[in-house]
């Protein structure tokens, strides 16, 4: 078993929480894992990504080689396209559809969507809207993870458990909101 996943977004959008949930679940299941993150300058509203590698045998490189990613999970549509050189020909791209516009020359949404649709295996989900329905506009990251969960070789229950232990410190209410968002994303693809 081997899952090479690229997480993409803009600094502050919560991709490290997605990474932490998958990472916790993977460790609980005794998988090997390497997860490279971006800290520092780019976290101020720049593009950020995380390479997450899960395997039942030891992982060598902290970085995923080009063309080898099985999955891109993106919380922002333009950012999902930035990592296409890493996506394998059979890989999936799962992305939020709501743009995060903090640059003057942000492209038209239609053009972004048509580029995403050119990718053979893609899922576009309005995570912001679904998150709002689930009770918290800020849990869009969990909605996207839910929508991508079918392409990760970890049972959904393990991901839910990881959400519980990750957000447990912040109180039951936060846990429930995030679980609801995760399930809503999951239901979107079922």
């Amino acid at each position: 078993m081997r899952n090479d996943i690229i997480l993409a977004g803009v600094g502050g959008q919560g991709i490290l929480s997605i990474a932490a949930v998958i990472g916790l679940a993977a460790v609980e299941r005794g998988l090997y894992l390497k997860q490279s993150e971006v800290h520092g300058m780019s976290q101020r509203g720049g593009d950020v990504q995380s390479h997450l590698r899960l395997s039942d045998s030891p992982v060598a490189s902290d970085l995923i080689p080009y063309g080898k990613a099985d999955l891109i999970i993106s919380v922002e549509p333009m950012e999902s396209l930035r990592y296409l050189p890493w996506l394998s020909s059979s890989g999936w791209l799962v992305t939020n559809s709501t743009p995060f516009v903090n640059i003057p020359d942000y492209p038209e949404t239609d053009r972004i969507m048509s580029e995403i649709r050119k990718v053979k295996n893609h899922i576009i989900i309005d995570a912001d809207a679904i998150a709002k329905e689930s009770g918290s506009a800020r849990s869009g990251n969990m909605v996207v993870l839910g929508a991508a969960s079918g392409y990760i070789d970890i049972p959904f229950e393990s991901l839910s458990d990881a959400v519980r232990s990750l957000f447990g410190k912040k109180g039951e209410e936060i846990v429930e909101v995030n679980l609801k968002a995760l399930r809503a994303g999951r239901n979107f693809i079922m």
Binding site: G45, Y66, I103, E115
Partner: peptide, 18 residues
């Protein structure tokens, strides 16, 4: 080389900002 697809031309740089 194992490169996947190319980055579409419409993708813009997103530098950090205030």
């Amino acid at each position: 080389a194992t490169r996947g697809g190319e980055v579409p031309e419409i993708v813009r740089m997103r530098p950090p900002s205030f």
